[in-house]
Amino acid sequence: MNDIVHAAQRRWQADYKAELSAVGQVRRAVRARLLRYGLEEDSDALGELMVMASELVTNAIVHACAVGDVATVRLWTCGGIWQLEVQDPLCRPLPEPTEAGAAATGGRGLLLVRGLSDEFGVELLRGRGKNVWVRKVAAPAMEGR
């Protein structure tokens, strides 16, 4: 795991084995960084970013990774903008939020992510997979710890 600090910008990234057990690890690591970088414990933004981290990592593991693959999680913040990214090794298919049927037990994750984020996007990484990202605007309550 790496923390990089520039003036008013903070970045963190970590690689995780593509196993469902990694989802909880990612959630805890993202939460720790969000708190360290200044979000309040009980803020809506903290909870929303943690939900989005869980959804994006789960999607990468379930839909874009094979056994032994690695997913990279990145978080950066600058000036009240928080960006969370999950990179996986699969160039296709590009994830698209879709409406799930009433009886479906899954298929709502990206709709949830789109609803919680201020921006959502996907970028192809020329033979290195794709990066799915979200942005949330939320002023930190204090300077990061």
Results as ranks from 00 to 15, higher is better:
residue 43 S to N: 01
residue 57 V to D: 05
residue 56 L to Q: 05
residue 60 A to F: 11
residue 55 E to W: 07
residue 98 T to R: 15
residue 90 L to E: 03
residue 43 S to P: 02
residue 38 G to L: 00
residue 51 V to T: 14
residue 39 L to W: 02
residue 75 L to V: 03
residue 51 V to Q: 07
residue 76 W to P: 00
residue 95 P to Q: 02
residue 96 E to V: 15
residue 89 P to Y: 01
residue 57 V to I: 13
residue 39 L to M: 05
residue 68 G to T: 08
residue 61 I to S: 07
residue 38 G to D: 02
residue 34 L to F: 04
residue 85 E to Q: 11
residue 78 C to P: 00
residue 78 C to T: 05
residue 78 C to F: 09
residue 68 G to A: 07
residue 49 L to G: 07
residue 88 D to S: 08
residue 97 P to S: 03
residue 48 E to N: 14
residue 65 C to I: 08
residue 30 V to I: 14
residue 58 T to A: 09
residue 71 A to Q: 08
residue 77 T to N: 08
residue 65 C to M: 09
residue 98 T to A: 10
residue 85 E to I: 06
residue 88 D to T: 02
residue 94 L to R: 10
residue 50 M to A: 08
residue 51 V to S: 07
residue 39 L to V: 02
residue 45 A to G: 07
residue 63 H to Q: 12
residue 70 V to C: 06
residue 98 T to I: 15
residue 97 P to G: 03
residue 92 R to G: 11
residue 57 V to Y: 04
residue 85 E to M: 08
residue 98 T to H: 13
residue 65 C to F: 01
residue 29 A to Q: 14
residue 74 R to P: 03
residue 74 R to N: 12
residue 64 A to Q: 13
residue 70 V to Q: 09
residue 93 P to D: 01
residue 92 R to P: 00
residue 73 V to K: 02
residue 84 L to T: 08
residue 94 L to V: 15
residue 88 D to F: 00
residue 87 Q to C: 12
residue 92 R to E: 14
residue 36 R to S: 13
residue 34 L to P: 03
residue 97 P to N: 07
residue 43 S to T: 02
residue 75 L to C: 05
residue 101 G to D: 12
residue 86 V to P: 03
residue 98 T to S: 09
residue 68 G to Q: 12
residue 83 Q to R: 12
residue 73 V to S: 06
residue 32 A to C: 04
residue 85 E to D: 10
residue 75 L to H: 01
residue 57 V to M: 10
residue 50 M to H: 03
residue 58 T to W: 09
residue 33 R to M: 09
residue 31 R to K: 13
residue 58 T to L: 04
residue 89 P to M: 00
residue 48 E to D: 14
